[in-house]
């Protein structure tokens, strides 16, 4: 796989890996059957600034690198700014992604949105983000997408 130096850097030295015990927004997207799952933890303060963000990812090099880059891009930003994060911006920040790995960046964008949707939900704020989180064919595969579908046996 022809990964950029930036992708390899974020894969080999991922930023913000882990969990946040007292996170107030947690989102999981992807599917083990497709080969990638991203889980994102947010700590959002009263003025809606993301003070901390962590991730855990099951997936390929690009999945780990896009997760890492996405967390870096939203850390310290407002919820609104974070909602504006696009997969394209993640790709650009990583110096490009192989065509077959574009879906990983889509997944990273969705992971951020999913965690924010959870934050809103916990706050009791009405929002149509949750509805949008029906995985938009993130990996183009034919499996049914059940988010956080890990083990079926």
């Amino acid at each position: 796989m022809d990964y950029s130096e930036k992708v390899m850097d974020h894969f080999a030295h991922p930023r913000n890996v882990g969990e946040i015990e007292d996170a107030n927004g947690v989102g999981t997207v992807g599917n083990a059957k497709c080969g990638d799952i991203m889980k994102m933890y947010l700590k959002v303060d009263d003025s809606e600034i993301i003070t901390d963000v962590k991730f855990k990812t099951f997936g390929c090099g690009a999945a780990i690198a896009t997760s890492s880059m996405a967390t870096e891009m939203i850390k310290g930003k407002s919820i609104n700014d974070a909602l504006g994060l696009t997969n394209k911006a993640v790709i650009e920040a990583l110096g490009g992604l192989p065509a077959v790995k574009i879906h990983c960046s889509v997944l990273a964008e969705e992971a951020v949105k999913s965690a924010i949707a959870d934050y809103y939900k916990r706050k009791g704020i009405e929002n149509d983000l949750t509805r949008e989180m029906d995985c938009n064919g993130c990996c183009g595969c034919e499996h049914d997408h059940h988010h956080h579908d890990t083990e079926e046996e």
Partner: peptide, 9 residues
């Protein structure tokens, strides 16, 4: 595995 959400449980 430490990085994988599937391993958490």
């Amino acid at each position: 595995r430490e990085m994988s959400p599937l391993y958490e449980e």
